[in-house]
Design a protein around this nucleic acid. Sequence first.
RNA 1: GGCGACGUAGCUCAGUAGGUAAGAGCGCUCGACUCAUAAUCGAGAGGUCGACAGUUCAAAUCUGUCCGUCGCUACCA
Length: 544
Amino acid sequence: MNHSNTPILVAVAWPYASGSRHLGHLAGAYLPADVFARYQRLMGNRVLMVSGSDVHGTPITVRADAEGVTPSEIADKYHAEFVKDWERLDISWDCYTSTGTNNHKEVVQELFMTLLNKGHIDKRTSEQYFDQEVNRFLPDRYIEGSCPHCEYLEARGDQCENCGRTLDPQELVNPRSKISGSEPELRSTEHFYLRLSDFEDSLEKWLSTRQGWRKHVLNFSKGWIEEGLQDRAITRDLDWGIEIPVDDLGEGKRIYVWFEAVVGYLSAAKEWAAKQGEPESWKDWWENDEAQSFYFIGKDNIPFHTIIWPGMLIGNGGLNLPTDVPANQYVTFKGGKASASRGVGLTIGEGLDMFEPDALRYALAANLPEQSDTDISIEEIVRRINEELVATWGNLVNRVLSMVNKTCEGQVPAPGNKKDEDNKVLSEVDAMLLKASQQLEKVEIRAALRSAMDGAAAVNAYLNATEPWRVAKEDPDRATTILSTALEAINGVRVALSPYLPFSTTKLEEILGPISSWERSPVVAGTPIPKPTPLFAKIEVTND
RNA sequence: GGCGACGUAGCUCAGUAGGUAAGAGCGCUCGACUCAUAAUCGAGAGGUCGACAGUUCAAAUCUGUCCGUCGCUACCA
């Protein structure tokens, strides 16, 4: 740590534009990534935070068919919704794009050609079910039929939900298309395959040298490799997706999402560089040995980021592999997995309609599923906001600014001579900043927030011990010193909270001055302190 | 079925390499204070660490079995 000016790539999972994203997605990837990126910027590092909407794939085409619109209309609709969500939350992207750009297509095709020319991609023929009514080959999970093992009538082509067994679609008895209901026929089709098995040894070696990765991420990835890596079809019989850059296979085939979406991290970096007018600058994050990359994803995405994408990078050569993949577990909503489509939990938009963005960010950051699944509810969010954010931090700022406004003629007082107790609280705040920094370096976002709040509690305790409101009556100079010290302490605490609370941070910066680095900056005597308004509103709980 | 993670106070969660009497926040009880958004500060109560068995001088932590939850299982991404 403390490497100032290090290029740090903050790569965030690409939200799938087939529906609204919910608070679980926000807590799983976007919020921790944003906190981490903001922290790294304050440490003086060169952060490039990228992501974009994933606009291809079968679920989008199926939804488009169902609604009688085109796939791009669905993708555009949700892409616009995501962009609005990010603005409302102030997620600090350097580049938020989509997989529908020309640039992305070119980068994907270039990578495809490199892997093809190096022999890591080859052609194979397989038998796939084809739905004649909708004129489309069917992904395994869009085929239903009776399970050959338990005779469950609605088994999917990839797995029977009743007995849990993994299936091949050909095993299903009386197969039918989930899209049209008709009986599909087997047709032979030729596709490109990524030879993942080529990378088994190098991936195993690479994973065995990873330090400080989360236990579930590392074990899960090693497990995949121990089972043996299977080559994987890159292309699909689709007309919605990125064109294959060679015509060997004929019409009607596209590169499929799992292969191209992860390439987005690279294409977004190139898009950003081009927009900066320095088209080669993306290399600082991808080819520089000093550069670090952190991939913020949910646990369902682990193999794509610890096996498949690194495999593709190794095959391509010359590009940096992930430094860390701090995948989060899931947020459950009152015990159930959050899912907007099933009506469990809140979408990001609904959460923002209900809570101020900083308050929502606080409540989720305090409950991030970093070690295990985490349970949340509206009551829990309200509790976090009212009993922690408002009571400990919001109230601290308010009480200090109020006292300074009243007893120091509305401006920051001169420091005066400090006593031991004054120096003690300041060193507590400095120690907190160091501790939070160490935690954030390890991507312990939630623990670092706890540290920051402990800092706020220490300042509250200092005020209760020194009682400036009483001292002001007998010894105004001493009261002034106490309040000046409290302001300095707050100046430290707000630094540690700033990655989590961008909106109230800006509000405080207007009074106390800007935050420009990860340290407690001095307060400037004479700065006007107006009568404060609360940083956060308490949520009124209505009992109906 | 296989693989992985998880099961710790009323609630939400920490417990890094087995070892001082098991931790935090919130809630609860008592007390202090009254500058502040009935906010703050201090003290306290509260847990046989999912069950059972084993290894060890010592187990929340290691091993095995079982129960429960979640995820993955390669064509959802």
